[in-house]
Design a binder for these strands. Sequence first.
DNA 1: CAAAATTACTTGTCTATACAAGTTGATGTG
DNA 2: CACATCAACTTGTATAGACAAGTAATTTTG
Lengths: 235, 235
Amino acid sequence: MNTIPQYRKLYEILRRHILSGLYEEGSLLPSENDLCAVHGLTRPTVRQALDTLVKEGLILKKQGKGSIVRKPPQNIGILSIEGTASAIGGKYLKTEILQKPVIRNWGENFPFELNDAERESGCIYLERLRFVDDKPVFYDINHLPNINLPRFTSRSFENKSLFDTLRSNYQIEVTGGEQRLKAIGCPVDIARLLKIKKGDPVLYLQRKMKTNREGFHIYSIIWFNSMNHSIYGRF
Amino acid sequence: MNTIPQYRKLYEILRRHILSGLYEEGSLLPSENDLCAVHGLTRPTVRQALDTLVKEGLILKKQGKGSIVRKPPQNIGILSIEGTASAIGGKYLKTEILQKPVIRNWGENFPFELNDAERESGCIYLERLRFVDDKPVFYDINHLPNINLPRFTSRSFENKSLFDTLRSNYQIEVTGGEQRLKAIGCPVDIARLLKIKKGDPVLYLQRKMKTNREGFHIYSIIWFNSMNHSIYGRF
DNA sequence: CAAAATTACTTGTCTATACAAGTTGATGTG
DNA sequence: CACATCAACTTGTATAGACAAGTAATTTTG
């Protein structure tokens, strides 16, 4: 059976509520017993859902007090952006799909090593241009192995997070990864997309992300205009 | 009572066993039921201990299989460099101290927030230029609070790691941190040091590192010439 | 009125049990 | 022998309940 566990459903609900702003920052989530009653679960199950939220940094638990809602830095699938001018609310982040997901080969000199399963299955490829405050900030191309992702290429990704889709529809979560970072002069075709001049300094990232699905990696190459925004990270 | 929870004790035991090499990499931990029997606990408690190990990356659980022991987690990439041409061994990394550690104020617009203790004590300041293969690759300026660091300013740091010194002489270890990243055109004075042209794209990092000493942070600002090297990181 | 004690809440830890689901090797069967 | 089946393991999910410990507001006490 391909059923989604209860604790996971509750996690998705709470996560959505938190991110949608239903709870103010610093306010308390319903108590564990309340959540039990409302959703018809027992405490260990509810706690499992809350544990996941804690791990993601969305809540902070205090014994005797409750679960305090936090709003972690706006996360664009692992990539956190910090604005220099305005705070970045989810509202101001837009995504334009330049290349809808298509199935194709990995390409000649793919900059990462691939395992056999990945190479044999081919990959799903998509290109995106992402906006903050209606101004283009970064452009990314993404490769994921075409393994057990039913109906993936027919989904809409416009203004949706790729990682949200993977998480809520396929239970795939990024658990870690590695990346290489450079500052380069922007090539002309990318510069046109980002509305900057050729040769302007941009951040160039190659990243390979591991997921909870064994051997399933997500590969991204990113050009990031850091003129008005920084990449923010914790380690 | 100040008793340590059972799951925490078990976690400490298993962690010590793994790090001491009692289990080989890739081998299996005793099954959850075995651990229950041996330590006189129930499965939820044992699982709580294992969860912590998973979170730390010391084991990897597979349903139906067991808990697989992994190598101790990779370093908290203080700053890993990856060469484009030759592999970089520690041997080829040299450090030149441009400004020996001095005690002074934090400066007007220090780019990070400081706590009271830090601001009141003033800071130790030093500048370094770091070479790979005898070519300058990055320049960093570092600030650390002048709190309980006897004889620090009289130490030699030439070709020594600042972090090694802090660990072995003062038992200060970096436990995590946060950073902001940008690509910028290199300012003229930095360009001269790095032997590149003014305006060439360089990576610019601001990082704040947390340590095992409560409230003691290390602040670094780094200009990195990524022409021939990348910054490599795991997350 | 101010401080101490109580009370009602919260999360933290733990036991005991049950069944589902994935893995592996042994056991039969054709 | 090759292959399917089964049995015995593993971890994953979930229920039900108990008591400990921290928090905060209320009540009692001096």
